[in-house]
Design a protein around this nucleic acid. Sequence first.
DNA 1: CCCAAACTCTTCGGAAGCGAACAATTGCGA
DNA 2: TCGCAATTGTTCGCTTCCGAAGAGTTTGGG
Lengths: 167, 167
Amino acid sequence: MARGNDREDRQTGGNPARAQLDAGEAERTVAYKLRLAQILAFRAFEEKLADRGRAPRYLGLLAIIRNHPGEPQSRLADAVALRRSSLVAILDTLTDEGLIERRLSAADRRINGIWLTKKGERIVDELLLESRRHDAMLTAGLTSKETATALDVLDRVIANLRTEDAG
Amino acid sequence: MARGNDREDRQTGGNPARAQLDAGEAERTVAYKLRLAQILAFRAFEEKLADRGRAPRYLGLLAIIRNHPGEPQSRLADAVALRRSSLVAILDTLTDEGLIERRLSAADRRINGIWLTKKGERIVDELLLESRRHDAMLTAGLTSKETATALDVLDRVIANLRTEDAG
DNA sequence: CCCAAACTCTTCGGAAGCGAACAATTGCGA
DNA sequence: TCGCAATTGTTCGCTTCCGAAGAGTTTGGG
């Protein structure tokens, strides 16, 4: 089922203070740390909520849908930095799980408007609580000032990348 | 070939000032922005260097190998936050491209020590230059102080996630 | 010495994202 | 009005990563 709670065979508790390997100069780069942090954060969030279906993985998408009901798939794909073609299977799954529904737009019949179901709204609310808990773990030991500037920096990095892409 | 230079049909320049969809409160979280920024940054880096084989994708790994020659695969997997099983195919590819080689350890014959070839070292040096250029694009418009605290914050986020995982 | 536990790397099937191509629909310019 | 380009959602084949399972090697306790 690929959703097993059994972890893979992995480092048995021993080997307690084995230093991590570093990448030297290559490591002192935003992109490198960004990637490492994101992989670990995403994995931890999903593992913690492995019993909640696929909603945790797509919480960002679901939150956008809640904030902007009825948007076409292509704009949602842009918003979460996925391709249109990738979104199809995702929306199929979320539809099967009863969290969203597609409604044909009357104004433009090429478009499927995407909407949350009642169940979808309930689950999104639940998961948003969990995500705040998760973020508290991520930023443990940081001052609120540091967290704030980190959020600001990430915003501007994203903006740089978006304009780069559009150019 | 899946490496085509033809971009997918995508936003034609028009539609200039269409606001991005936001995720509301869900968006004010480190994990969310982390994911978005990483996806965009990784994609941009790979697209810019699409003609260099698979080395750009695995530059982080290659840099670690350069800094720590002869390490076993399992420790490399930990360092780049991938599973041991995932690393096998990656190292196969990098071996095929002549960038690394596996050498059986004499002391412990379970272990493959991983080493860069001459060609590998040359290419890593090239790509490290590119990665600095890339990072400059990411952090355009940021003060060096802001960048520094962002790097520091990411380090601590990674540390939080690593200890969480080890526990 | 010996055997079970631990650790190494590997193979295999499944899940997910991507790029390319396609049909249906819209709209814009000749 | 007509025709062609642009847009939308979709399908298809490919690549990548994961978890589970397995074989070879090492190690430590009886």
